[in-house]
C-alpha cells in the first residue's frame, strides 16, 4: 500500500492475431490501485480478446505485462490467478450440472490430501460458500445442492462473482457483467464495483452500458477500436458524446 504510484497492472503493446486477423494491435494502458477502468468499444473492437489475454485464457502473442512494476508472463489462467487476477467471464463459465458449492470451488477444491484418501472436503467448502454468499448478500439461492442449470441468470452471475472473491484478488476483470441482467440487478452490480474498489481492488470492466455504468463509476475509460486503443478519458473529462465519437471513430483528436 505504500507505493501508490506504481500501477497494479500495466499493458505495453499487447497484440493478438487469429490467423490473418489482427484482433489486438499494440494496446497499452495502466490500471492504478483502487481504480475502475472501463473498457468500451464497438463489437469486434477486441475488448473480450483483451480481457482473455490478461486472464491468460487466450494468451497474447505480442507485448508485455507489468504487474506491480515487475514484468510477468501470463500464458495460462493459472498464471493470472497466481498474480491475483480474477475474471468474471461474459458466459460466466458455470457448469450447469454442478451445484453452487462445486461451481464456486471449481479448480480450487479443498481436499484432505492423499493420506486422507484425497477426499473433497465438501462440508468445509459448503461452509465457506455460505460465508461468501452471505458476504455478498446472495440470499436467493435456496439450496446449495441445486444444479446451476436450474438457477436464474442473476443467481448464476452471483456464483461467478463470488467464485472470484473466494481468492481475494487484487485485480478483477469483468466482461459485460450487466448484459443479461434486469434493472435492479444491474444496480447491484454497480454497487458491487464500488464496493470492490473500496476494498482496494482494481477493476477492468467491459460494458456497453455508457450512462448507467461507465460514466457513473469508472475512474477512467479506455476506448478500443479495431484492436487499437482509440482514446482514453478521465471520467471528469468524459461525456457520452465524446466516448461515442471515439467508439465510432468520428473523433477528430483524442486526448492522450
Amino acid at each position: 500500500m505504500a507505493d501508490t504510484e506504481t500501477p497494479v497492472l500495466e499493458l505495453r503493446g499487447i497484440s493478438k492475431r487469429f490467423g490473418g486477423i489482427t484482433a489486438l494491435d499494440g494496446v497499452s494502458f495502466q490500471l492504478k490501485r483502487d481504480e475502475i477502468v472501463a473498457l468500451v468499444g464497438d463489437n469486434g473492437a477486441g475488448k473480450s480478446t483483451l480481457i482473455k489475454a490478461i486472464s491468460g485464457s487466450v494468451p497474447a502473442d505480442g507485448g508485455e505485462f507489468l504487474f506491480e512494476g515487475n514484468k510477468v508472463d501470463i500464458n495460462t489462467p493459472v498464471d493470472a490467478r497466481a498474480l491475483g487476477i480474477e475474471t468474471v467471464y461474459q458466459d460466466l463459465a458455470v457448469c450447469d450440472n454442478l451445484n453452487t458449492v462445486q461451481n464456486l470451488f471449481l479448480g480450487q477444491e479443498l481436499t484432505s490430501g492423499l493420506m486422507g484418501g484425497a477426499r473433497l472436503r465438501k462440508a468445509a467448502m459448503e461452509k465457506r460458500a455460505r460465508e461468501v454468499l452471505k458476504d455478498f448478500q446472495v440470499t436467493t439461492i435456496r439450496s446449495l445442492a441445486t444444479p446451476a442449470g436450474r438457477l436464474s441468470g442473476g443467481q448464476r452471475q452471483a456464483i461467478a462473482i463470488c467464485r472470484c472473491m473466494l481468492r481475494n484478488p487484487k485485480v478483477v476483470l469483468l466482461d459485460e457483467p450487466t448484459a443479461a441482467l434486469g434493472v435492479a440487478q444491474r444496480q447491484q452490480v454497480i454497487e458491487l464495483l464500488r464496493r470492490l474498489r473500496s476494498e482496494h481492488r482494481s477493476i477492468i470492466v467491459i460494458s456497453h452500458d455508457l450512462n448507467d455504468l461507465v460514466l457513473e463509476v469508472a475512474d477512467r475509460i479506455v476506448v478500443l477500436r479495431l484492436g487499437q486503443k482509440a482514446a482514453e478519458f478521465n471520467r471528469a473529462d468524459a461525456d457520452a458524446g465524446k466516448v461515442i465519437a471515439a467508439i465510432t471513430g468520428i473523433a477528430r483528436h483524442a486526448p492522450h
Binding site: 486472464s55 485464457s57 495460462t76 489462467p77 493459472v78 490467478r81 475474471t87 467471464y89 458466459d91 463459465a93 458455470v94 457448469c95 450447469d96 450440472n97 454442478l98 462445486q102 471449481l106 479448480g107 480450487q108 477444491e109 481436499t111 484418501g117 484425497a118 477426499r119 473433497l120
Partner: peptide, 24 residues
C-alpha cells in the same frame, strides 16, 4: 463422487471451456 478429478469428469462433460478457464 469424492475426489477432485472425479468431479472434473462431470465438469468437462458440461462445460469444458469453463473447466479450462478454472485452470484445470
Amino acid at each position: 463422487s469424492s475426489t477432485r478429478y472425479g468431479l472434473y469428469l462431470y465438469a468437462v462433460g458440461s462445460n469444458a471451456s469453463a473447466v479450462a478457464r478454472a485452470g484445470v
